[in-house]
Design a protein around this nucleic acid. Sequence first.
DNA 1: AAGCCGGGGGC
DNA 2: GCCCCAGGCTT
Length: 347
Amino acid sequence: MTFYQHIINWYTDNKRDLPWRNTRNPYKIWLSEIMLQQTRVEQGLPYYNKFVNKFPTVHHLSAASEDLVMKMWQGLGYYSRARNLHATAKYISHELDGRFPDNYKDLKKLKGVGEYTAAAIASFSYDEPAPVVDGNVYRLLSRYFGVDLPINATEGIKYFKALAEEVMHTSDPATYNQAVMEFGARQCKPQNPDCEQCPLNSSCVALQEKKVASLPVKLKKGKIKKRYFNYLVPFNSTEIILEKRTGKDIWRDLYQFPLIETQGPANLDQIIAQERFRSIPGADPSKIWLYNQDDIVHKLSHQHIFTRFWIVNLEDELPGAVKKSRVKDYAMPVLLANFVHEFEFSN
DNA sequence: AAGCCGGGGGC
DNA sequence: GCCCCAGGCTT
């Protein structure tokens, strides 16, 4: 049997029943693929179901407000995906009358759709023989063929794409693409794969050469940055101040409390001296207190955020503020959603 | 080519 | 702590 025949046989016996595998609807395929970028199936699945229920077609998604889309995306991360998702939904609904592009080349032109996602949609919805090369496929190919080129450098990316093209030749690209990814995710998994019961074990180069644990090769990324966030939490009996994040930093378009970022841990005197504090109507330096005794450390893949919440009690009306009861309707980073859930503005 | 963009889970 | 995840965009 050939490489792909082994893979497809394994898949027939081991495939998970996932909702986007029971459809060829390009809208649902596209939605699932955007959500699953750099995201585990188990994490993305509930979001997929929620979106499909709320937005059964691309027109429904197109008609939604961006704030609602962001809110429904809350917790999934990489929020530019949600912005691009919404922009692309509007484009397809308004400019293409709801019809998705039906080939790899045109799909790849959509915002948020790169080589992997274009290949996935083209094959799953239209049977176009475009190989998917995601993290699972990199791992499987690098091990099976014993290739130690880094999978995140130009040469390796090019090499593995060509290899994927060679290996996929089959009359059923949709099934094959599903199968290689499932095989990589569950059989040829990153840690402690069970090679003894792998259908490819007699011909896997990495297994013969004892390199399974060292493949694939990946270049290391930079150091993790430390940042110090001081959130002012200004509220009166009914209202609270929220702002929308702008700029190119993390969490763009999500909501937050007024933020003072400092170079290191900040104390009360530093905070009350800040213009951002003093500009709050009715802010009283004697009515501010530190909510968390220890820093809350929010860990992202590329930065650690040391967080202090400064509670600012107010008595005056707050023009432009939001109702405290509505805070949970706003899309917020998990760091803040956790705080809101815990604090509940009980006092 | 390298850096940036989240959050969760495994070990 | 470090690595990975159905990657893509920006610089």
